Amino acid sequence: MDGFKTATTICVMQQGKGSSCGASSNGVPSVPTATANLASLTVAATDASIILTGTGTAAAGGKKNVLTGTINASDLTITWAQSGDCVAAGYCQDQ
């Protein structure tokens, strides 16, 4: 998810708004297809926030990692917060 976090941050700075920074847009990669461990990864982009959600498969514990970036409209900086249950389970890094 770090690659998506970086790409969406750069996109917001270049485009001047978050709504232009969804998956497959303005340098933000396409979401990957499901794998043995990754059930899904989504990118939800609005002018106020970017929400990245990664969900593991049942085989990988089914844990979720959510990174929510709040966009400061005046200077386009993004403050990221992590939620979901993957950190407590030891399945992903604390961001």
Rank of each mutant, 00 (worst) to 15 (best):
T8Q: 01
Q15I: 07
V87T: 15
G61H: 07
A36P: 03
K64G: 06
G84F: 04
A48Y: 07
M13K: 13
A34I: 06
D75V: 02
A60N: 12
T35C: 02
V43W: 06
V87N: 13
Q95V: 14
K5E: 14
I50C: 02
A59R: 01
A59S: 11
Q93Y: 13
A58C: 08
S30W: 03
T77N: 12
T77I: 04
S40E: 02
D2H: 10
S49A: 09
S30P: 07
M13P: 07
G27V: 01
T77F: 07
N72R: 00
S24Q: 14
A23H: 04
A58S: 14
A36M: 07
Q14L: 12
A48L: 02
A60F: 12
F4G: 06
G84S: 10
T68R: 02
M1Q: 05
A45V: 00
G16M: 04
T77D: 09
G62V: 09
T8N: 04
P29A: 06
V31S: 06
M1D: 02
V43P: 04
Q93H: 13
T53N: 10
F4I: 12
D94Y: 08
Q93M: 13
G61M: 09
G62N: 11
S20M: 15
Y91W: 14
N72K: 00
N65T: 12
T33S: 13
A39F: 00
P29G: 08
G54K: 14
V66A: 05
T33D: 09
S20N: 15
G56Y: 10
K5F: 15
T46S: 10
A73N: 07
S20Q: 15
T6I: 15
P29H: 09
G69E: 04
T35H: 03
V87K: 02
K63Y: 13
D47S: 00
Q15V: 06
Q95I: 14
V31R: 03
Q82P: 11
S49G: 00
G54T: 11
S83Y: 11
G16L: 07
S24P: 08
Q93A: 15
T8C: 09
G84A: 08
T57H: 08
A36C: 04
G22D: 01
A89T: 10
T35Y: 08
T9C: 08
A59M: 10
T33E: 08
W80A: 08
T55V: 13
T79W: 07
K64D: 02
A88C: 04
C86S: 08
T70N: 11
G56P: 05
C86K: 09
G54R: 14
L41E: 03
G61W: 13
T9H: 00
A39V: 05
A88K: 12
S49F: 03
L41K: 09
S24I: 03
